[in-house]
């Protein structure tokens, strides 16, 4: 009990923030629904929650939504998986081998900082709009967070800990298992959080271009057809998936690496 804690405002209770947040969301949708009682409703440009819900039910019942999501999921996970397999080892090598780090750092920074998405049209034309093209776009966007975070993780290893483990008689393998891995893993998982966002962009870019299936294609097709209800339903679905994925990783970070809480 330090004196400083007192000066913070007193909260009403444990669940106050959750309640307030839920209330705000409910209010938002209610206001959205209600506003068309006052403002004329043009179904070509805007939808309202009741119609979106109906559209969503339609899409689920017909199986369309699930099919599109399944199509999009394959390149998403393949590209993300490849990004982990390539990015993490590369990042570890860059962090551990000082000279390799020197040599590759500027190059990777340039790649990371440039809007690589700009190569998407090329990749689409070269590899097609199918699975390979999308997977490669996803990979090329998602690999960099893994490289950088794995590298940062290795560089963040406390050298004193290496000495401690050594002095206690630990060998090379113990160093990897007891010092390197616990230090790098949280960084990699944090990188995954960023990579997921970029992977989603990759899938959407690929599918907006010229695909004939997938959730991105569905959104742009419903837009072309002025099927706004279904378009909103798809957009909200993508939002929910994105939130579940990133918050899921956040949750995993909190429970798997409790010692890093607050970073």
């Amino acid at each position: 009990m330090t004196e400083q804690t007192v000066i913070q405002p007193r909260l009403m209770g444990r669940y106050r923030n959750v309640v307030l947040g839920a209330l705000a969301v409910v209010l938002f949708f209610a206001a959205w629904q209600a506003i068309f009682l006052v403002v004329p409703f043009n179904p070509l440009f805007i939808s309202k929650p009741s119609l979106i819900a109906a559209g969503f039910v339609d899409l689920v019942a017909s199986g369309e939504l699930f099919d599109d999501l399944a199509v999009s999921a394959v390149p998403f996970f393949l590209g993300l998986g490849a990004a982990v397999v390539v990015g993490v080892p590369l990042g570890i090598v860059m962090g551990w081998r000082v000279r390799i780090g020197y040599a590759l750092d500027p190059l990777m920074t340039i790649f990371y900082a440039s809007p690589l998405v700009a190569l998407a049209p090329l990749l689409v034309i070269f590899f097609g709009v199918g699975l390979p093209g999308k997977t490669i776009i996803v990979f090329s966007l998602a690999v960099f967070p893994f490289i950088f975070n794995a590298c940062a993780g290795v560089r963040a290893v406390d050298r004193r800990l290496i000495d401690v483990v050594r002095s206690l008689g630990g060998g090379e393998w113990d160093l990897y298992r007891k010092v390197l891995l616990p230090s790098v893993l949280p960084f990699v998982v944090a990188g995954a959080r960023i990579a997921i966002g970029r992977a989603l962009i990759g899938v959407l870019v690929g599918e907006f271009f010229a695909a004939s299936e997938g959730i991105g294609f569905a959104i742009s097709r419903f837009g072309d057809l002025f099927a706004i209800d279904k378009m909103f339903a798809c957009i909200l679905t993508v939002m929910v998936i994105a939130v579940v994925l990133t918050e899921g990783i956040r949750f995993a970070e909190r429970s798997a690496f409790p010692w890093r809480r607050g970073q």
Partner: peptide
């Protein structure tokens, strides 16, 4: 507390998804 769900949702979602809209 009230804005948090919206910010979380929009920040997690690639804004590209809104482009057709």
């Amino acid at each position: 507390a009230m804005f948090d769900p919206f910010i979380t949702a929009f920040n997690a979602t690639p804004r590209l998804v809104f482009l057709p809209l």
